[in-house]
Amino acid sequence: METTILTYKIFDSVAQLPNNWNDLAVGNIFLSSSYFEVLEKSAPKNMTCHYIGLYKNEKLEGIALTQMLTLTDVSSFGVNKSCIKSKLRDFVFKTFAEHVLFVGNNMLTGQNAFIFSNQITTTEALSTLKKAVIQLKKDLKRQKTKIHITSFKDFTIEGSKDFEIESFKKYYLFTTQPNMVFLNQPEWESENDYVNALSKKYRDHYKRARKKSEMVTKRQMDLEEINFYNDKINELYFNVTKNAPFNTFYLAENHFPTFKQLLGDKFLFYGYFIEDKLIGFNTMIINGCALDTYFLGYDDDHQKDKMLYLNMLYDMIGYSITKKYTKLIFSRTALEIKSSVGAKPIEMFGYVKHSNKFINLFMGKLFQYFDPKVTWIERNPFK
Rank of each mutant, 00 (worst) to 15 (best):
K41Y: 04
K41Q: 13
K41A: 02
A43G: 08
P44C: 11
K45N: 10
N46T: 06
N46W: 01
M47K: 11
M47Q: 14
T48C: 05
T48E: 15
Y51E: 03
Y51S: 01
I52A: 10
I52V: 13
G53K: 12
G53D: 14
L54D: 09
K56T: 11
N57K: 12
N57H: 08
E58C: 04
E58T: 01
K59E: 05
L60I: 08
E61M: 04
I63S: 07
I63G: 05
A64W: 10
A64R: 09
A64E: 13
L65E: 09
L65F: 01
L65D: 11
L65I: 09
T66V: 00
T66L: 00
Q67T: 04
M68R: 08
L69I: 13
L69A: 13
L71H: 11
L71V: 03
L71K: 08
T72C: 08
T72A: 13
D73L: 12
D73W: 05
D73S: 12
V74M: 01
S76N: 07
S76E: 04
F77T: 05
G78P: 03
V79R: 12
V79I: 14
N80W: 02
N80R: 13
N80G: 05
N80C: 01
C83M: 11
C83N: 15
I84V: 12
I84S: 15
K85G: 00
K85P: 00
S86D: 14
S86Q: 15
S86N: 14
S86P: 06
K87E: 00
L88Q: 02
R89V: 00
D90Y: 00
D90V: 01
F91N: 01
V92G: 07
F93N: 10
K94R: 15
T95E: 15
T95V: 09
F96A: 02
A97N: 09
A97T: 05
E98T: 07
E98I: 03
H99L: 04
H99N: 15
V100T: 09
L101V: 02
L101D: 03
F102P: 08
V103R: 11
N105Q: 05
N105H: 09
N106E: 13
N106H: 05
M107L: 01
M107V: 00
L108C: 05
L108V: 02
T109E: 14
G110W: 08
G110L: 11
Q111K: 14
Q111E: 15
N112V: 03
F114C: 12
F114R: 10
I115Y: 12
F116R: 10
N118S: 02
Q119L: 09
E124G: 07
E124H: 10
E124R: 11
E124N: 15
L126M: 10
L126H: 10
T128R: 12
T128S: 14
T128P: 07
T128N: 15
L129T: 00
K130C: 09
V133P: 05
V133K: 09
V133G: 06
I134T: 00
L136S: 05
K138V: 04
D139M: 06
D139L: 09
L140T: 01
L140V: 01
K141A: 14
R142I: 05
K146V: 10
I147N: 13
H148T: 01
H148C: 01
I149M: 07
S151Q: 12
